[in-house]
């Protein structure tokens, strides 16, 4: 009992320290509370029920906006920036491909379309159709880019299809594809587990929300400077583990 009490006091002490602040918040009165609800409604919480989970990077953005707004209105925590993700231009992503390793994490048609695009770039950039989920889209990517090395981490179905496509390249080691979850197709695994679609290009992380178009017309998002450098730190370490995973391909054969 004594121990439990001690734990409770310890656990509550940071909360108790906020007592004055909490008591300054307006808790009383029906009309006041209604106003508060009205205020929260201005944060557009309904948007949470309309999130498109096939585009996780936009989910991230939507959730952040509502959370930030609610925090400021109800708990008077207003010290967060307006946005964590900002639109990035395709040119920026593309220029990044010229500098250092590329890593693409994600699953499905979006990742496949990016890779199609990259293959065209690596081959010399002629105008061609690339497929986006079976829909052919005409595109003319810039030619003459030098890609040093690209890692693609994706679900096994996409991985298998990508490996087939990569056979058309002269340099078989330019792209390394890492499939997640055994040797066979497991789309459900990718959907549940792979997370945010991410492109690591020129030492900077980008999230993308693909639509039915080519990568140069997608919505690309990146973090602000200080956030970006921290995410970059983590992704940079991840590339090392992915490089190891790509090497394992030979080992397991």
């Amino acid at each position: 009992m004594k121990r439990w009490l001690l734990t409770a006091v310890v656990a509550l002490s940071p909360a108790l320290a906020q007592f004055d602040w909490l008591s300054n918040l307006d808790w009383g009165g029906i009309s006041n509370n209604l106003q508060r609800v009205g205020a929260v409604m201005s944060c557009n919480p309904q948007s949470l029920s309309q999130l498109d989970f096939s585009q996780p990077s936009l989910v991230f953005r939507g959730v952040y906006k509502v959370t930030k707004c609610t925090l400021c209105l109800t708990l008077k925590m207003c010290g967060f920036p307006d946005d964590m993700l900002y639109p990035a231009s395709w040119n920026e992503v593309l220029q990044g491909f010229n500098r250092g390793d590329i890593m693409i994490v994600g699953s499905g048609a979006g990742v496949e379309a990016i890779l199609d695009y990259l293959i065209l770039i690596a081959k010399g950039g002629t105008c061609q159709n690339i497929s986006y989920g079976g829909v052919p889209i005409y595109t003319c990517p810039p030619g003459g880019m030098r890609i040093s090395k690209a890692y693609v981490v994706t679900d096994t179905t996409t991985a298998r299809r990508l490996k087939e496509k990569l056979k058309s390249l002269n340099d078989p080691n330019l792209f390394k594809v890492v499939g997640v979850g055994g040797e066979r197709d497991s789309p459900e695994l990718a959907r549940v587990l792979l997370g945010l679609p991410l492109v690591w290009s020129g030492g900077k992380p980008y999230l993308f929300a693909p639509g039915y178009s080519t990568p140069d017309k997608w919505l690309w998002l990146t973090f602000d400077g200080p956030v970006s450098s921290k995410v970059a730190l983590v992704v940079n370490i991840a590339t090392r583990y992915v490089a190891d995973a790509a090497r394992r391909e030979e080992e397991t054969r």
Partner: peptide, 15 residues
């Protein structure tokens, strides 16, 4: 009372 000030990256990334 103490007030929180968000510091980048605000939430911990995991890749």
């Amino acid at each position: 009372p103490a007030q929180p000030l968000g510091v980048p990256p605000y939430t911990l990334p995991f890749v």
